[in-house]
Write a protein that binds this DNA or RNA. Structure first.
Lengths: 224, 224
DNA sequence: TCAAAAGTGTTTCAATTACACCCATGT
DNA sequence: ACATGGGTGTAATTGAAACACTTTTGA
């Protein structure tokens, strides 16, 4: 078998919305390389694991339950000098989780806008993950992955505002999501958010696609 | 460094449109494993190559020039038993080329609908590649990657028809693509396609995104 | 002259936008 | 009572779908 051998890692772009701000889960590296710098959580693929299994295990080790969370493969990165220890290919994964009371494991939540430069090529992996999340909010129902099991339309709208930085008119947004079949399932109960009229509670519906899509004001120009 | 070692391969989903039919480039495997079966062209990553470099080299070895062709990473596949020789991770790539007079190299053009079951997990890789191409025609100008340097709107429309199986009304399609700034650049010359009124010739413009997108009648429901 | 393909004009319809207005609740 | 957020009604606007019709070529 020609070709050289690689260690294969999975790295996780775990995104959430905290207080209206899109945040990513980062870990400060204890050991070299890049000791002391911030990096995406991740680790090597073990034994007979498949990629998504390895990513799920890393989520578990961080302290996040697997099921109920969105987890998908992003892209692979294998520049020859990306890891000084040798040839390491990493498969970036995107995980979306609802707001959690405490940062899990040894990790910290950092606003995406303040993430700065990360270890390895994780700056690029993070950028790709955020762009993927932004794009998918347009044409899928993925925004619910940022919400707890039951949520109001306001909470869902705040997800769009945090991820996109903007969002359509609240009243039209409400109509759009409730009129898409299978997007939201009303629970029948209402909840008060402190002030104002209480909102209807919803769960995720079975729909995944959004037709027609939700429109951003100035969508970014993705590379072909 | 924990974790086991992998051989890393790149496999290519090379798509083109021949006589109005979406075709994929396949190679019959000479050596085990899967000897005699059809597979996607590909090979192991060598030396200090990055992934896209390795995919470009494979394209060259097949006999296709690199530049001018669209080439992008698709996804990685690493199921533990996908290759009987051991742990091999493959990074699928998508390449789009215009119709070529002869099938390059040792390869054959096979209509995607007749590809059947391929070696390894290449059936899945092909399906993912086709789905990516279908999706990208909606919101990018990628269809021009299937066309030669100069082409008519009819040729471009036939790309949509081949890839999607359907396409909007020819007259509205014409308006849509010509009214999107930067999609098409008229060359000023006309060309006759045997019968009927000659059409205007165009080149690719600098635009990559399509806003608003081209709409399919029944878009497939992509996994979240 | 006719068939075939390119391209324009125009009507119809669906969806988004914008915004006036009412509803329900906490203070 | 009133501020605050939830939600409905509705007109204006935009863009796509549908299709009649003209233009330009080859046979």
């Amino acid at each position: 078998m020609r070709g050289n051998l690689f260690a294969v890692a999975v790295d996780l772009v775990v995104l959430t919305v905290r207080d209206g701000v899109l945040c990513v889960l980062l870990r400060e590296r204890a050991a070299p390389p890049f000791a002391g710098e911030r990096a995406l959580p991740g680790g090597f693929v073990r034994g007979r694991e498949d990629l998504l299994d390895a990513a799920g295990r890393e989520l578990l080790e961080i302290g996040l339950a697997i099921d109920g969370h969105h987890l998908e493969q992003l892209a692979s990165y294998a520049a020859p000098d990306r890891d000084p220890r040798g040839r390491v290919l990493t498969v970036g994964h995107l995980a979306l989780v609802p707001d959690l009371p405490e940062p899990p494991g040894e990790c910290i939540w950092v606003p995406v806008a303040e993430a700065g430069t990360l270890a390895f090529d994780h700056t690029q992996v993070l950028a790709d993950g955020v762009e993927r999340a932004r794009a998918k909010l347009e044409y899928t129902t993925l925004a619910t992955a940022f919400c707890p099991a039951e949520f109001t339309i306001s909470q869902l709208r705040r997800v769009y505002e945090a991820v996109w930085g903007t969002c359509p008119d609240p009243r039209n947004f409400s109509r759009k999501v409730t009129s898409t079949p299978g997007f939201l399932v009303p629970t029948g109960t209402k909840v008060s958010s402190g002030r104002g009229r209480p909102g209807q509670l919803y769960r995720r519906g079975p729909a995944t696609a959004l037709h027609p899509p939700m429109l951003r004001d100035q969508p970014s120009d993705p590379p072909r």
